[in-house]
Design a protein around this nucleic acid. Structure first.
Lengths: 355, 355
DNA sequence: CTGTTAGCGCATTCAT
DNA sequence: ATGAATGCGCTAACAG
């Protein structure tokens, strides 16, 4: 058996357990000779400190929970990777929970995480209206990721979705579009709501009318994207461009376009959200707003860490909601509308990507 | 503060901690009245048992580790979801680790998991030649997922990759292809090796020659797929169909085909591995071998569970490697070769999917 | 510098 | 049926 305890190590090294503990944690000064003996003994016994016992004593587990609504949505694995990487760098492990977009399941996950005494939680919540933050904060530090509950003033990291929506819309405007439609996921979720707001801002800034029939909210499913796409494309007049605030709905939208035999981008332009290898190699290459997913994960963990280990010197209680800039990747799915001269491009700062 | 202990509950309920423990674990019979009081007290105090303390006492954590080489590869989130779902159903949580295809990092992860005293590990290993299974098994039960180390005789769940490779190849043969090329990831990884073996089997069964220049091994990166694709497509004679044993390389391959202006499937057919919403909506729809990823995750956890909680009645030591059948999804990227009459289809059992 | 000791919160004998 | 007491492996005083 290879499961030895500190006492085994202490005995073999001929020292006390306190000395072993000191060597492991660098907690006290131990003479070189004994320190060496301890290390040898640990090696010989293949000893690994029991983190469970350690946690019971210290009150910390060095584990955080991470709750996401859907790990198969390409956006989240990227966030997870960033968070896990940052966490590991600080000695933390991550318990991953998939809530399946179900707030009940999410609550159960949070209960479990509390029972396991995680030091903190990164939460991409499924129900932003539930005022559960207050309850949660009493249990452990929480940083909201991607989706920010209404009314939250502290502890969140996300994309600057209003700006992202603005940027997406503005790109289309710049290349000559005016009849722009917008399909979104549930508007209760801050990313979708924010992107729509950015859309409105951009349209108004240009003085373009926002036709309500060009705005459709759905549920972030592929089929819904397809359905809403079909509805929009059968409208008269038909929009010359459609923005999808969700990567799954974009897929359905592209399907609808193909189904109707409309050429993209010649017949209709599309802009989506979230980037991946697939969007780039799609035919046509998909113009998207790329969220800094990895960085969101990293920043979220950093913020959580500052809440778990409050810096002694400074009061760390300034409200903190961090919004990271997204990047527009212009590819083949956007082009000037068929019957319009290209508007003179001004203030264009997009990254142009071959596609 | 909301962090109460069993003693708080016991005091409030007017019973002993032993009674509280008994109520929680159903370990002993407790009178209805006291049981009720305890439950009320727990509720009133918002008490959640401290799993850390419990683990120290019981020697179990009800946590498993899961190590994957790349969470941003669409295949793994699906496996993770299946495993996490099954695990949660049995009261287990999952610590997720991304090894980034690096066996050193993987080893560190395993050390950490051991230190955290996880009850078992699901491992999609990055280095199948390292004989570390023996070391690992001394620490905790391990079930290998997807990738099976050479020589392993027990504890693995994967797709039946030989059959899958055979099936993919046979589909192409059935519709008239003979000059079939094959690009793979590192052949040290069992899935790639197995699929190639299936390819060879299918070609030989039909009596077709296997041209070595049609076989290219790479490293599962998109760019590599592109490069190998360009090489193959510039060969003379050019293959009429190409199979990619990896979803990322397939993407590069499709890029290469587009780059050369070769129509797909008219000019060249492709078959890939791993299914997702993206492969289906790709233009053309991609013919792929869909691995039962979710089920692999579930089955792997089930097998791990049987190792963590050996059934008392039966000796559970029969060697166990479970291979699940994959499913061919025929879509738009495969068609008969330009200059060949379609061979009569026989024994065709593929699922035909609109695309 | 080093060893002894007291819990951390809980499950579990063992009496009662 | 119930309670008192023991110890899981470790850290952090404290005493030497």
């Amino acid at each position: 058996m290879t499961k030895h305890t500190m006492r085994d190590v202490a005995r073999l090294a001929g020292v006390s357990v306190a000395t072993v503990s000191a060597v492991i944690n660098g907690t006290a000064t131990v003479s070189e000779g004994r320190s060496r003996k301890v290390r040898d003994a640990m090696e010989a016994l293949d000893y690994y400190p029991d983190q469970v016992a350690r946690s019971l004593k210290t009150g910390r587990t060095d584990v955080i929970g991470m709750v996401v609504p859907d790990i198969t949505n390409i956006f989240f694995p990227q966030v997870i990777r960033g968070a896990e990487d940052a966490a590991r760098g600080q000695g933390y492990s991550v318990i991953l929970c998939d809530s399946n977009e179900d707030s009940e399941e999410e609550r159960r996950h949070l209960d479990t995480l509390f029972s396991r005494r995680v030091d903190g939680v990164l939460l991409a919540c499924s129900d932003p209206s539930a005022g559960y933050e207050h309850l949660m904060r009493r249990r452990f530090p929480v940083v909201f990721v991607d989706r920010i509950p209404r009314g939250l003033t502290d502890g969140a990291v996300s994309t600057d979705n209003v700006e992202a929506g603005f940027h997406a819309t503005n790109h289309l405007i710049q290349i000559g579009h005016e009849r722009i439609a917008f399909i979104t996921g549930q508007l209760g979720l801050s990313p979708h709501y924010g992107r729509l707001e950015g859309f409105r801002n951009a349209m108004q800034a240009r003085g373009y009318a926002i036709r309500e029939e060009y705005l459709r909210a759905g549920d972030s499913q592929i089929d819904t994207g397809r359905r809403l796409g079909l509805e929009l494309l059968n409208l008269n007049p038909r929009p010359t461009a459609i923005i999808s605030s969700n990567n799954k709905m974009l897929l359905g939208l592209m399907g609808a376009i193909a189904e109707l035999g409309i050429p993209c981008p010649a017949g209709v332009s599309t802009v989506g959200f979230d980037d991946s290898a697939w969007t780039e190699h799609f035919a046509p290459g998909l113009t998207v707003i790329a969220q800094p997913a990895d960085e969101i994960g990293r920043a979220a963990f950093a913020m959580l860490l500052s809440k778990m280990q409050p810096a002694d010197g400074e009061a760390n209680d300034e409200p903190d909601i961090k919004l990271l800039p997204a990047e527009l990747k212009v590819r083949g799915s956007t082009a000037p509308p068929r019957s319009a001269a290209t508007a003179p491009a001004k203030n264009v700062r997009e990254t142009i990507v071959a596609g």
